[in-house]
Design a protein around this nucleic acid. Structure first.
Length: 565
RNA sequence: GCACUCAUAGCUCAGCUGGAUAGAGCAACGGUUUGCGGUACCGUAGGUCAGAGGUUCGAAUCCUCUUGGGUGUACCA
């Protein structure tokens, strides 16, 4: 339910009755319990504009706020309006949610087509930790948009067309001509060897560049070899996505090569729009307030990633009909995207009402605050990191003896992968992220394990009860009231997250919810014999809705729950 | 040089379109009538919101400057 809009509507009615036109009405969560459930702080600004006394205006407005959802309106301080939500009304809403599917969250009427570009591995190498954040953040946003009823098109813009492929093919042709393709199982190693030769041997480097031209001009033999590299690389990726429980499939892959044929048309379009200039032999678009241009075609005729990105925008605009295109890419590329977006809009490659967004995120650091590397300074393979997460997760399972080996394996996977995702998603994506095993696999604090534990604890109660649930929710204490307010705010939170693309807000919400539930649980017995049946039913229903909300929230983050751990 | 970005408790982080006494977790210390899962819960302590100005009834939040980090900056992606 869009809880806050309901309250905003009440305020709007009151403003109408009072004959006052405010700019924008938005209630906030009350900053303290004694201020009620919500507070409206806009009176001071409105009153000032009209030259009225804020307290008088607040009182006038308060008199006009009515509705069965509101139990009390208070005017406090300079003119704050504190709103208390009626307990009976709240109880009914939680009962409704208990009886509904999908937590009674409405699908967005204003359905959008949203393209999410995320993960974007390079096909010449195996995925490394640098791909982790994009993959996790992008996937959770895709889940969220889908849940809210939008049409989501996942796009994996894989790098399969660059200079490195010439190098790999040249190396394969010259050094490993007679080897079987099994050699490539360890693609990472193969890449390193090829790169070394490329750096050491100038003639080889030249031949490698020739191979690039061959691929791009459609040489059949070379394309066949190229295809094999891609297939091996893609299966590496699939293995990672499978382990990470990510919703990307081969169907979502739109590699750079996919746009190859569209590139000349893009250049033409830029020419026609008058944006194109030739500088030092390269075709460039000069941007406002920026020294360096966006180079779309090199002086030797080759294309760059700016050209491919523009072609991709064109495709997403013309063919996919996107209303919103989200690029979940490292913050270091913000200049690049600013340039590409500006050019796409200015040239008409992208129409004006489509929203182009760079969902930027910070760098992953180790515990000491340095960029994340192996001991010898190399890049950490993503698959190794995920395997380690599962191994470490195994140690956190309390009574391993109570589980079968298969159960332990399955639990460890859910816990380990959940921890990796949750810790990443629980901080503001734009700041740098400190990767810390001990912290992420802790039961204490805002972690996936704490959430999964809270969920399992509720499941344990429900399992123990195992009877028919009837009756309705009757909120009987301040803490139950607070719990209900939070549960009802879930949709507002999701909407806001969808707008701002800030998944960390969901973890804060879930953590607050779980903390308050734990407090409720400590002070309110549920199944004890001396609890009256109606109270017992009410508490069971409330707990059930809390559990479902936790489950749904984690599901959006791409994290599974378990009934016991 | 220019541009972007960040600076909040010892550490890791929240803090909404500017709102009432700046919040969590970790670490530290103390506590919890047999406990529906104690891997929990409660409490204590911890702050010049980097610094200085400005706007405002009101600033961690907006503007300017300073300092200190990070990142980007013409044919890699």
């Amino acid at each position: 339910m869009k809880f806050k809009s309901l309250i905003n509507d009440k305020l709007q009615e009151a403003f109408d009755k009072a004959g006052i036109k405010p700019d924008l009405i938005t209630v906030n969560d009350a900053s303290k319990p004694e201020f009620g459930d919500f507070q409206y702080n806009g009176i001071m600004a409105v009153a000032k504009k009209l030259g009225h006394n804020p307290r008088d205006t607040a009182l006038l407005l308060a008199d006009n706020i009515h509705g069965d959802m509101i139990s009390k309106i208070e005017v406090a301080g300079l003119g704050f309006i504190n709103i208390h939500i009626d307990n009976n009304w709240l109880s009914s809403r939680i009962t409704d949610i208990f009886k509904s599917e999908d937590l009674a969250i409405e699908k967005d009427i204003n359905q959008k087509t949203i393209v999410i570009d995320y993960s974007g591995p390079n096909m010449a190498k195996e995925m490394h930790v640098g791909h982790l954040r994009s993959t996790i953040i992008g996937d959770s946003l895709a889940n969220l948009f889908e849940f809210l009823g939008h049409k989501v098109i996942r796009q994996n813009h894989i790098g399969d067309w660059g200079t490195q492929f010439g190098m790999l093919i040249a190396y394969l042709e010259e050094v490993h001509k007679n080897d079987s393709f099994d050699e490539l199982k360890n693609l990472e190693n193969f890449y390193k060897l090829a790169k070394k030769k490329f750096d050491d041997d100038l003639d080889f480097a030249d031949r490698a560049r020739e191979y690039v031209v061959k691929i791009q001009s459609g040489d059949k033999h070379c394309l066949e070899l190229w295809r094999k590299f891609i297939d091996i690389s893609l299966s590496h990726c699939d293995e990672v996505y499978e382990k990470l429980a990510i919703g990307l499939t081969k169907d979502d892959a739109r590699a750079e090569s996919f746009y190859n044929d569209l590139l000349p048309a893009i250049i033409k379009k830029l020419e026609h729009s008058g944006l194109l200039q030739i500088s030092d032999g390269a075709k460039c678009v000069f941007l406002p307030n920026r020294e360096a241009p966006l180079i779309v075609q090199k002086s030797d005729g080759g294309y760059l990633y700016a050209s491919t990105d523009l072609a991709a925008i064109g495709y997403r605009n013309d063919v996919l009909k996107a209303d919103r295109i989200c690029y979940v890419v490292d913050a270091r590329q913000s200049d690049h995207f600013a340039g590409v977006f500006w050019t796409a809009k200015e040239s008409g490659i992208c129409n004006n009402d489509a929203r182009l967004e760079h969902i930027a995120f910070g760098t992953m650091m180790d515990k000491s605050g340095k960029p994340f590397k192996t001991r010898d300074g190399g890049t950490v393979k993503l698959i190794d990191l995920l395997d380690e997460a599962v191994i470490r997760a195994k140690d956190t399972i309390k009574d391993r003896a109570n589980f079968s080996n298969d159960e332990v394996a399955s639990l460890a996977k859910i816990i380990g992968i959940g921890a990796v995702k949750y810790s990443d998603l629980s901080i503001n994506r734009e700041s740098n992220y400190i990767f810390d095993w001990d912290k992420m696999l802790s039961f204490d604090g805002n972690t996936s394990l704490y959430m999964q534990y809270a969920y399992a604890r509720i499941q344990s109660i429900l399992k123990k009860f195992a009877g028919d649930i009837s009756g309705s929710v009757e909120l009987g204490s301040d803490i139950e009231h607070k719990l209900a307010i939070m549960l009802l705010s879930f949709e507002d939170i999701l909407q806001k997250i969808a707008h701002d693309a800030t998944p960390h807000t969901i973890t804060s919400f879930l953590y607050d919810l779980a903390t308050i539930f734990m407090r409720f649980y400590e002070q309110s017995p549920i199944l004890r014999d001396d609890v009256p049946n109606n109270v017992k039913m009410s508490r069971i229903m409330l707990s059930t809705v809390v559990a479902r909300t936790i489950k749904k929230g984690l599901e959006i983050l791409g994290i599974e729950v378990v009934d016991r751990l």
